[in-house]
Design a protein around this nucleic acid. Structure first.
Length: 603
RNA sequence: GCCGACGUAGCUCAGUGGUAGAGCAGCGGUUUCGUAAACCGCUGGCCGGGAGUUCGAAUCUCCCCGUCGGCUCCA
């Protein structure tokens, strides 16, 4: 029932950057960064309390890239980004007074009394949640007094470099029924130069934001007239997508999958039978009236593939049956969670369902893992991280099936030599699963592939096959997606490569550049020769100076610029500028075509 | 959905109550050039939408729409 795709349900927070690299954490130049940042959070809270008397402070931990602190401000007050410089200024003033971070062990009653006296309801609540008998510690920094486990730096002056970054709303305990607090994010480093470096890194990440690249490289758009979370693939983006899909289909056919097509709508009754209306209704769009009947837009493909399976009696001889489809599905996502291509409502899922016998399950999983590794590696993701999630407390299906499926996943992973982490109880209610994550060039972690057993739907649709014994048996069903969603995978690819896609995926692989318009006819011949070899080559723009053409080509991130002037025309060559490697080589046209065709092959 | 910020030309942005601006892109012309921007000119705006305040609103107020940053990484 749960979607076999990695695009959406895997991430708790709106932006999959919850899965961040560990590299900024821990020790740095002999200073514990977490301690430094946690101390900076206290310093900030002290400043906020001075500037906004009556502010209540909630929690203020060190996080991956800095720290935050949550506040409930007095009625009518608010902190906006424009207040950040003032708060920073006040933090520096406090540093000038250089208070110590003074650790106090207090007993529960004294702590409660103190925080009640200070009207700090969140701290009171936190104390009440501390188990009886556990040591309670507080820290005093000048006038600021906080419940805190520590440790901290000795004095406020020992925080050499900090910067407040932005504000946000955050629910107390992340719970929508709780009050909305104001969160202030900041970061701190042992030196000004490290802070500067960090800020530059953030700026670099901004530069390679896929939404920006999508516009600059004319790949896709998400116009607001169209509606939130819906993507228009422009011609250049569509070229990339076509290359991805062609590759995907070829690999799947080679791996024994059969391709199918299914519609975008189905009668509501089908979604009742499948259980989606019970478990997934919140993410489905409302009914569409059709001749007195109700239809729903599909959020997943599984019921369709099941109907194909069920279209006639099945024999054990035709198992495993692997049905694959690059399918458009639509899921409602709250507007606040939409994010470029990374979280959309119109999703293209690279979906497949495997129907097999119990004995075949392990072999099938091995096959899926192999295909996933191969495809992800072809796209440039060699480092994979794998999670195996097992039976949760509430689960459908017999224990015997769970044991069988978990064992199949475990053995398949071992056979493939893949290291993995077990997440006990994290499986879907309908079956255990394996998720594969990739790391991009900036160290961020993304979920892509997912392989999920499903004991629920075969039951609901009463699937069977006739075994060698002549009796009916229930097949095993496995959902799996390898790229997750094409939208999201494309977004990740773009950011991973900073827009400079590998040659085989490049929307435009070679662009001809002329020294003057005199070489136009020759340039067109070269384009034709390259196109004849299946290379995506494009003609020069007449009337442009050569430096302008070079610059345009560089900015469009075309892998190769083939410059032709009088000398090249005479020699039947091009002067090939490699925009990635920076080299320039003279090469004959035939050789160029052969070389580029080969480069597509190996990738 | 909720909190906050933002919304001015295709893009990046300036303009804080008094005639809507710049650069790039686009279009037209001139130039025909050897590895990241030739030169000149022109077009282009319901200042996100609606209501209000005002003699006068891109600018102030309210509502709506959209986008962006976030919404436990637990003292």
């Amino acid at each position: 029932m749960r979607p076999p795709e990695g695009s959406d349900y895997s991430c708790r927070s709106s932006i999959p950057r919850s899965e961040r690299p560990p590299r900024m954490r821990g020790q740095m130049a002999g200073v514990d960064l977490d301690v430094l940042r946690h101390s900076a959070a206290h310093l900030m809270a002290a400043a906020v309390c001075e500037l906004f008397p009556g502010a209540e402070y909630a929690i203020g931990p060190a996080i991956e890239e800095g720290f935050y602190y949550d506040f409930l401000l007095p009625e009518g007050a608010r902190i906006s980004d424009s207040d950040l410089p003032n708060i920073e200024q006040r933090m520096r003033e406090i540093q000038g007074r250089d208070p110590a971070y003074e650790r106090l062990e207090v007993d529960r009653d004294a702590a409660l009394l103190e925080f009640n006296r200070r009207s700090q309801r969140f701290k009171v609540e936190l104390i009440e949640r501390i188990p009886e008998g556990e040591l309670i510690t507080c820290y005093r920094t000048g006038d600021f007094f906080d419940l805190c486990r520590g440790p901290h730096v000795g004095r406020a002056s020992q925080i050499p470099a900090f910067r407040l970054l932005h504000t946000a709303g955050a629910y107390w305990h992340g719970d929508e029924s709780q009050p909305m607090l104001q969160r202030v994010y900041g970061t701190a480093f042992p030196s000004a130069s490290e802070l500067e470096e960090y800020l530059q890194r953030v700026e670099m990440a901004r530069q390679r934001d896929h939404r920006r690249l999508g516009r600059e490289l004319d790949l896709f758009s998400l116009p607001e007239e169209l509606g939130g979370g819906l993507v228009l693939w422009h011609p250049r983006g569509a070229v990339v997508r076509t290359v991805m899909e062609d590759y995907w289909r070829r690999e799947h056919q080679r791996a024994g999958y059969q391709l199918v097509y299914t519609p975008h709508l189905a009668r509501e009754r089908l979604w009742e039978v499948s259980g989606h209306l019970g478990f997934f209704a919140d993410e489905m769009y409302g009914p569409i009236a059709v001749e007195g009947d109700r239809y729903r837009v599909k959020p997943m493909s599984c019921p369709f593939h099941i109907l194909i399976y069920r279209s006639r009696p099945r024999s054990y001889r035709e198992l495993p049956l692997r049905l694959a489809e690059i399918a458009s599905v639509y899921r409602f996502q709250r507007s606040g969670t939409l994010h470029g291509l990374l979280r959309v409502r119109g999703i293209t899922q690279d979906d497949a369902h495997i129907f097999c016998t119990e004995e075949q399950a392990e072999e099938e999983i091995v096959g899926v893992l192999e295909l996933a590794s191969e495809m992800l590696s072809r796209f440039g993701f060699k480092e994979l991280e794998v999670d195996l999630s097992t039976k949760p407390a509430k689960a459908a299906g017999e224990d015997r099936m769970w044991e069988l499926a978990e064992a199949a996943l475990d053995r398949a992973l071992r056979r493939r030599g893949m290291e993995f982490k077990v997440n006990p109880g994290e499986g879907a209610f309908y079956g255990p699963k394996v998720d594969i994550h990739i790391r991009d060039a900036m160290g961020r972690r993304w979920q892509c592939s997912t392989v999920q057993f499903d004991f629920n739907e075969p039951e609901r649709f009463d699937l069977e096959y006739i075994g060698p014994d002549g009796a009916a048996h229930r097949p095993i069903m496995v959902h799996r997606a390898l790229l997750g969603s094409l939208e999201r995978f494309f977004g990740v690819l773009l950011e991973h490569y900073g827009g400079a896609l590998p040659f085989w995926l490049s929307p435009e692989q070679v662009r001809l550049v002329t020294v003057s318009d005199d070489q136009l006819p020759y340039a067109l011949e070269v384009v034709a020769a390259l196109e004849a070899r299946g290379i995506r080559a494009s003609r020069p723009r007449p009337g442009e100076t050569m430096p302008a053409q070079i610059r345009d080509g560089e900015m469009a991130k075309v892998p190769y610029l083939a410059v032709v002037g009088r000398r090249e025309v005479e020699a039947g060559q091009v002067n090939l500028r490699d925009t990635r490697g920076g080299s320039k080589t003279l090469v004959g046209v035939d050789e160029l075509a052969a070389r580029l065709a080969e480069e597509t092959e190996q990738a």
